[in-house]
Computed example of a mutant assay.
Amino acid sequence: MIDHLDHLVLTTAKEAACIDFYTRVLGMQLESFIGGTPPVERKAFRFGNQKINLHIKGKEFEPKADIPTPGSLDLCFIADRPLNEVMAKLNQVQWPIIEGPVIRTGATQKINSVYVRDPDQNLIEISELTT
């Protein structure tokens, strides 16, 4: 019945820092659009064929998760470049790696991963597929 993930929603308490992390550090594209109930200007981070919609803590709109909470996500992204280049970029922008590289089990195969935290303390795993 389900084919793939289209988007997910991230709730942040630190809008400016969150936008900085997902755009400057991870290289996602910030976009604005009109949506929600009632229709309001919204923001999202686009990467590949997916996006992360942004909710601001205390300014959420319907429909939303029952208890939207900054810092409750644990996300894994597959990088578009080798993991050593990802680590070099994180070091260049002085974003601390909290674990890795380590081998993990991904959705389709083994992955080599590093872990960081975003400004809301969500756990972000950045991975490369292994052969």
Rank of each mutant, 00 (worst) to 15 (best):
V116F: 01
D20V: 05
C18R: 01
M87V: 15
I97F: 01
T12G: 02
N53H: 15
L54H: 02
K57V: 07
E60R: 02
A107G: 10
T131Q: 13
I98R: 14
G58A: 09
N84G: 05
I126P: 02
N91M: 06
I2R: 07
I52W: 01
K57D: 14
M1C: 11
F77L: 12
P82Q: 03
I67Y: 13
P38I: 05
A44E: 12
R117M: 12
E41H: 09
A65D: 15
M87Q: 14
M1A: 13
C18Y: 03
D3G: 09
D66I: 10
G71R: 00
T69A: 09
R42L: 15
P119E: 03
I103M: 07
I34F: 08
G27P: 09
N91L: 09
F77K: 00
S72V: 08
I97H: 01
Q94F: 11
E15I: 11
F33G: 09
S113K: 00
T105C: 08
F45I: 05
C18W: 01
T12Q: 03
M28E: 04
V93I: 13
I126K: 00
P63D: 14
D118I: 02
D118G: 03
T108G: 08
G106W: 00
I56A: 02
L10T: 04
L129T: 12
P96Q: 06
D80R: 08
D66L: 12
E62K: 14
T11K: 00
V40M: 13
I56L: 14
Q121C: 08
V102P: 10
V102N: 11
T11W: 00
D66Q: 11
D118A: 03
A65I: 06
V86M: 01
P68S: 07
V9K: 01
N84P: 07
N122L: 03
I78Y: 01
I103Q: 10
I34N: 12
V93M: 10
G36Q: 06
E15R: 12
Q92T: 13
L83F: 00
G71Y: 00
A79H: 02
V93D: 12
T105L: 11
I56R: 01
